[in-house]
Nucleic acid binder design. Structure first.
Lengths: 197, 197
DNA sequence: AGACCTTTTGAACGATTGCTCAATAATAAA
DNA sequence: TTTATTATTGAGCAATCGTTCAAAAGGTCT
């Protein structure tokens, strides 16, 4: 062995992720990152290879944090679908005050790279698909546990969840109307549990 | 009088708008614009003042074109709500092949500028509000003409329209599954016309 | 034609971009 | 302590960024 790294990779990725999430890929400069993660360019490039490499890892880190947060809400709820709703409320209502952007970073990346950077577009699409699959699995588990009707369609529900969640996040981005948001999220879940074959 | 302008302002704005729509504000350089609109920097700055000024006019031009397209679909349909649905299908299905981005430029701008550029964020939010108001008015007219029930809530429907439209556009951005898109748009409108007080 | 005014041109500005690399520092094993 | 190996530093590269401006060109009037 030799010299050991001074930086915690997870901390660096969290900070870089927040920067990219708020300002976008093109809107974030390596110097922005240098300043907030307190690393010199040589160190950044030795660790992540390129701005694109750092972005890919940041996006991966974001998706992972997203899923862990969702798991936490579901784990604390007796009904996984109620946990899912609380997770949505957290993102749209509380998240508005403490997140770098109201819009999902995965969709923001997908929108920024589509037609611009096929590799990064593909990468973000794959993570989005993974998210939809995860939600679908949660709905499948909820069905198995008897929280929804037997003719409930978890695939449709997963699809609708992603669409509604995206629509609502965009709509309430920059808007500060938590009571209206709460009301529309309620409506979203009333419709969701009625997704049948 | 003196020398007259060689460029058609509308053409220039259309091309600049498409560039910004596809690549975003930060991702588009003035040199990109120089090349596609065939103007020298001095001319661009004499006409539009700055990159931000050009973007604002481009966004305004985009919103105007959006509304004209919507009016055209509604004007050609016997039922304005059917026209609205055809407009949505055009954007999500046909538009996927001929538009610079599957995502609405207004939301893309709103997402890019939130927390970054308050003036441009406000500007995009105002245009989004205008779009929702226009859709709400269309629903109100449809109600007046008897195309929906008397307890139909046009404000709720306008709100839901914007949310669903955004969610679907994002979901089908880069996805090439027109039959699934058609199916989900149908479902969206079935739910929309049942928006009541 | 000539005078007058506006538009267009394009070289060039300082700032910033993503990124490199030789030098230096820091650690673990011998 | 020495040696081997790895991490960090930061000045600085070439390219590109948004923007400016004096000069040239183009059009309308008398």
């Amino acid at each position: 062995m030799a010299n050991t790294s001074k930086f915690n990779r997870g901390d660096v990725l969290r900070k870089a992720s927040d920067l990219f999430w708020g300002k976008g890929f093109a809107g974030t400069s390596i110097r922005d990152i240098q300043d907030t993660v307190n690393m010199r360019p040589g160190s950044i490039y030795a660790t992540f290879g390129s701005k694109e490499g750092l972005f890919k890892e940041s996006l991966l880190n974001y998706a992972g944090a997203m899923e862990r947060k969702m798991d936490a809400y579901i784990g604390n709820a007796h009904n996984p679908i109620v946990g899912l709703q609380q997770y949505v409320e957290y993102n749209i209502i509380e998240g508005a005050t403490c997140h770098p952007s109201g819009v999902c970073m995965l969709f923001k990346a997908s929108g920024e790279f589509n037609g611009q950077n096929p590799a990064l577009f593909q990468f973000s699409q794959t993570l989005l698909d993974g998210f939809e699959n995860k939600v679908t699995q949660i709905f499948a588990d909820a069905k198995q546990a008897g929280f929804v009707a037997e003719d409930f369609d978890e695939a449709n529900a997963g699809q609708q969840f992603v669409i509604q969640f995206t629509g609502l996040r965009n709509y309430f981005n920059g808007r500060n109307t938590p009571e209206l948001a709460k009301q529309l999220i309620d409506k979203m879940f009333v419709n969701l549990v009625n997704e049948t074959h």
